[in-house]
Amino acid sequence: MPTHDEVFEKVRTALVDALGVDDDEVTPESTMVGDLGAESIDFLDIVFRLEKAFGIEIPRAELFPDDVLTSAEYVQDGKVTEAGLVELEKRMPFADLSKFKENPAVQEFGNMLTVDDLCRYVVSKVGAS
């Protein structure tokens, strides 16, 4: 079972390789989109690298639940509804949604996910000591 530091280092390597950023730009607090400049296609690249680095399988929409964000059931006037937020919390227990809840605009969602969230997701899959 990897330590939390080992998980972070592997996540950092995946992000450096996928996004072309420097090592020191990747901190636990860095946001994927705002700080590291990730675009939608980068998330596919990141998923591949995390799967390979940790020997895990990341099902579609588990890490980035874009089906919720494009659902008429969960989005109204460009904002995630209460029911949508409940669904996101259920689907993303590894992510801190408190800031997003203040302004649940769909376009802000990409700015919410941090490197720490990614690490917590990986730990939820592989465990950590």
């Binding site: 596919l44 690249d45 591949f48 390979k52 579609r60």
Partner: peptide, 9 residues
């Protein structure tokens, strides 16, 4: 390096 229903690396 990786292959899944969405694509491959």
């Amino acid at each position: 390096q990786a292959f899944q229903p969405r694509g491959a690396l």
